[in-house]
Amino acid sequence: MAEIGAARSEAERTLEAAIVQVEAWAGRRMSYHPVSGGISNTNFRVVVDGEPHAYFVKIPGRGTEMFIDRKAARAASLQAETMAVGPRTFDYLDHLDIEVSEFLGDRRPSTHRDCIDRAFRAGVVQIYRRFHEAPPLPLTKTVFDMIDEHYAQVEELGGHWPADHAWLYRQYQEARAALEASGLDLVPCFNDPMPGNFLVGADNSIKLIDFEYASNNERLYDLAIWSGEHFFPESVEQEIIEDYFGHYDKSLHARFIVHKALADIKWSTWAMVQNRMSTLDFDFYKYGIWKHMRARSIIHDPRWPLFLKAL
């Protein structure tokens, strides 16, 4: 743990300058340590003498204001806290757009191995259902809004386009038209199912963290992007649909698969924005190219036209 005054990086200097402004911590000894795993921001565990728990403090990454609405993220975090889906949050540094929450030291980040267990997957499905059933969030941002936003940003920044960008864009437009024609089912969505955003307790209970990308969005997108993140086979996707809706339906599965392709297009394009803007030590170009490849693999499936018709 580093003490105040020991900062060596820009993020650490920003952290120190911020936490000394917290009135509730004034005059107390504070120390901090980086928390690994994030690819948007720099995160820290902060220990304050006399406090019963540590704090999780998030320093926004360079350029993230281009696609993260911090006030909307704060509202989503508060809603999750109220529902006991997320950790306790604090408004200490809201004026700096710096997120502060309770560090859940008695929980561990989930891994892909956890999701091999059907009981664990069922628990995740239930926590998704709870979040989806909450009142609407102040921000409505569909996957279409996200893709359009990132396309414009890549264009503005002179970022990388794949050689078949025009083809991918046409596939996106066709999928969007089919989904919009069928009607959108908008609910509060988490939108960011990296394994580390699911914290597991000793009793196998689950809490969500990191609501920066949360918004009102298409219900099945939230489940589809989770499946894509964990490489679930279609047999597991069938179980997820059955667990969530109480029955399996082929048209729901078609919608699910279309959203998986859109999720990869969204995050591949996001990665090309980050490749131009971020200062984090992460290979965003490689990540984006890989996401582009997986989107193609879904769209090239001979069943793709049938999926679009089934919507």
Rank of each mutant, 00 (worst) to 15 (best):
M1C: 11
E3S: 14
I4H: 01
G5E: 02
A7P: 00
E12Y: 08
R13F: 04
L15S: 09
L15E: 09
E16P: 07
V22T: 05
W25I: 13
H33W: 06
R45F: 08
V46G: 05
V46L: 13
V47C: 14
V48G: 10
D49M: 11
V57Q: 03
G63R: 01
M66A: 15
D69P: 08
D69H: 11
A72W: 00
M83N: 01
V85F: 07
V85H: 00
G86R: 03
T89V: 15
D91I: 11
D91S: 12
L104R: 05
R107Y: 05
R118I: 15
R118D: 05
F120V: 13
V124K: 00
V124C: 06
I127K: 06
Y128W: 08
R129W: 03
R130A: 13
R130H: 10
L137K: 05
E149L: 15
V154C: 12
E155T: 14
L157Q: 07
L157T: 03
P162L: 12
A166F: 04
A178P: 03
L179N: 02
G183W: 03
L186G: 07
P188K: 07
N191F: 02
P195W: 06
I209Y: 03
N216Q: 12
N216I: 14
N217H: 11
F232C: 12
P233F: 10
V236D: 06
Q238R: 15
Q238M: 13
E242F: 08
D243F: 03
F245Y: 15
G246F: 04
R255P: 00
F256H: 12
K260L: 06
K260D: 03
D264H: 15
S268Y: 06
W270M: 09
A271I: 11
M277Y: 00
D281W: 00
F282K: 06
F282C: 06
M293D: 15
M293V: 11
R294W: 10
S297Y: 00
S297G: 08
L308G: 09
K309R: 14
